[in-house]
């Protein structure tokens, strides 16, 4: 093939341009620390990182936030129930004591303590978490339990909540109730009614009721409490386990995304240096190719 100076000039220009473009791309990758910044640079990688960013990772983070919320709710519920259990045990002791050989006056003396315990129980049943009443079911913004005492001294406890579950998603399509409504924990108002019955029995010196129905109902209450606490505990355990798993998954997802997106620094620096050498070699050869022609040698 006939070779002209124009051809040499053109091919030098093309080669230098290509080399410089490659050098620029490498330096771009080095500067951004990413293998690709546009979908066309790696369509498959783009699809994958979009999936990780827009679905997996975001969802993981949201589930973890949900779970944090759930753990808070269940822990507060659990603490409240523990408090209630202690109180019920005290009531049970008092009921047993009152069923024994005591005078009417002694029994009457116990009644105020029972009344205090009842008030305390109602206040526990109205436990708030960030302004929300945790035993109210879905009716969280008003105290679910109200205590009223009529002129005859009879105490009534009313329930204005509902038995709905507060559902939180902890995994795709996996929902968990993070509350225990008053309907379950306290059987609506039955629990408080038992305490009031006990108080009335103490005031009326009704030893039969104290030794029989009151004690029996108290045991039913205690059983229900234990069952509720077991359930709350189980849910908490499930949340903790899932949270740990999600944390692992989070780390894994970030690693995966980094593997796809982020450059291998050592490799990239090597490639950059190689590209730089290629460019310098091209420059050096070009410099020697451009000048000489026959003109330089004819005299």
């Amino acid at each position: 093939m006939r070779v002209t100076h124009q051809m040499i000039g053109r091919s030098i220009t093309t080669n230098l341009r290509n080399n410089l473009a490659a050098l620029q791309e490498k330096s771009n990758q080095l500067a951004t620390g990413r293998n690709f910044n546009r979908p066309s640079q790696d369509p498959v990688g783009t699809y994958k990182t979009m999936q990780i960013t827009g679905t997996s990772l975001q969802r993981n983070e949201q589930f973890r936030r949900n779970m944090g919320e759930g753990i808070t709710w269940l822990t507060v519920t659990e603490n409240a129930l523990a408090d209630v259990t202690t109180a019920v045990q005290r009531l049970r002791e008092l009921a047993i004591a009152a069923g024994g050989a005591l005078s009417h006056g002694d029994r009457e003396a116990i009644a105020p303590e029972v009344k205090e315990i009842l008030r305390h129980l109602v206040s526990v049943a109205n436990t708030e978490l960030g302004g929300l009443y945790i035993f109210g079911g879905h009716r969280t913004q008003a105290p679910p339990y109200t205590l009223t005492e009529d002129p005859a001294g009879i105490i009534t406890v009313n329930f204005t909540g509902d038995g709905e579950q507060r559902l939180v998603e902890i995994a795709p399509a996996q929902q968990l109730a993070v509350n225990l409504a008053g309907t379950t924990a306290f059987a609506g108002t039955a629990f408080f009614q038992t305490v009031e019955t006990m108080r009335q029995a103490l005031l009326n010196n009704d030893t039969v009721a104290l030794g029989g129905t009151v004690l029996a109902e108290m045991d039913v209450n205690l059983d229900r409490l234990i069952q509720s606490r077991a359930e709350t505990g189980a849910r908490l355990a499930r949340l903790s386990a899932t949270e740990e798993r999600l944390l692992d998954e989070h780390i894994y997802l970030r690693e995966l995304r980094s593997r796809i997106e982020d450059i291998d620094l050592a490799g990239m620096v090597t490639e950059f240096t190689m590209q730089e050498n290629a460019y310098q070699a091209a420059l050096a050869t070009s410099a020697r190719m451009i000048f000489p022609s026959l003109v330089d040698f004819l005299k």
Binding site: R38, P39, S40, Q41, D42, P43, V44, T46, Y47, M50, Q51, G54
Partner: peptide
Amino acid sequence: FRSMIADLGVEGR
């Protein structure tokens, strides 16, 4: 949406 972007990438490439 992801498939759409992947298509865009493939076409661009």
